[in-house]
């Protein structure tokens, strides 16, 4: 478990990080390191240079912006988990953050790192997808705002360009019910299947580890919009979805779990 050799540089600012990423081939951003470093140790990733933004304290904040809460990309899971502002305005997010990994992961790992890693098996990407969050990214051409629904495009792949830095996550406030159902074997594991449900006028449901990206349970959402019962809507949890098979679960078992967990999530979110 030793990574291939690489160069390391500490970015002094976001523009500095962007400029290094633009100029150094195969350079890669390092935040909390809890997704990237294991991949490097397994030699599944071999960047030529790590651009460390871990000490850019200006990217760590949680601020009230009226109808949304702005979360700096470098905010640690632990801080998300314990934010009073988020607990009152977007309560699902602190709860989901509390379900990530174990305490040491939550003290180092960052919300921006988790989201830009784009792992379909991670908790936070699915949560921000169900929340219809927006992401602010800064690149050589300036800043752009990307809706969560357009952000995740493939296995560990997002719309971020290689020289773009995710700087902020904007999560809309909501006052309705919510639920996060995480099914796993060990406390620190990724979900075998997870379900995030947010009820705020309409009901949005997203799925963890049911595909290469976090997914919206579109069948369930459409059924609910048409006035279907919870039982009926949850039976459509994996409509159009072909979940993976692995040592923890076959594809068929994942479909079944999605149905059970969506039902439980809806019961909790809509009670």
């Amino acid at each position: 478990m030793f990574p291939a050799s690489f160069d390391y540089v500490k970015a002094t600012s976001v523009p500095d990080a962007v400029s290094i990423l633009s100029s150094v081939e195969d350079s890669k951003l390092l935040a909390g390191g809890h997704s990237l470093l294991p991949l490097m140790k397994l030699r599944l990733a071999s960047p030529s240079m790590l651009v460390d933004i871990g000490s850019l304290s200006e990217l760590s904040y949680i601020e009230d912006k009226g109808d949304y809460v702005a979360v700096g990309a470098l905010t640690r899971h632990h801080d998300v988990q314990n934010s009073r502002l988020l607990k009152s305005e977007v309560p699902i997010l602190p709860y989901v953050a509390s379900q990530v990994g174990d305490p040491s992961v939550r003290h180092r790992g960052t919300i921006g790192g988790s989201i830009s890693h784009g792992d379909g098996a991670s908790d936070l990407p699915a949560a921000v997808l169900a929340l219809d969050a927006k992401f602010v990214a800064v690149g050589p051409k300036g800043e752009r705002v990307i809706p969560a629904s357009q952000f995740f495009v493939g296995f560990l792949e997002t719309v971020l360009d290689l020289d773009e830095v995710l700087t902020e996550i904007r999560v809309p406030k909501f006052s309705g019910g919510w639920s996060y159902q995480k099914f796993n074997r060990r406390a620190q594991d990724w979900a075998i299947v997870g379900v995030a449900a947010v009820s705020n006028g309409s009901t949005k449901v997203s799925l963890v580890n049911m595909g290469s990206t976090p997914l919206r349970a579109v069948g369930t959402e459409a059924a609910l919009a048409d006035g279907a019962s919870i039982e009926e809507a949850s039976s459509k949890a994996s409509d159009g979805i072909d979940p993976p098979s692995d040592l923890n679960a076959s594809s068929a078992y994942r479909r079944h779990l999605a149905e059970v967990l969506v039902r439980r999530a809806l019961v909790e979110a809509l009670r």
């Binding site: 397994l42 074997r185 060990r186 406390a187 620190q188 594991d189 040592l247």
Partner: peptide, 16 residues
């Protein structure tokens, strides 16, 4: 061997 790391090989911890 398909589970040569602790990601796949489910050695439990005290939490379980």
């Amino acid at each position: 061997l398909l589970d040569s790391t602790f990601i796949e090989y489910l050695m439990p911890s005290a939490a379980e």
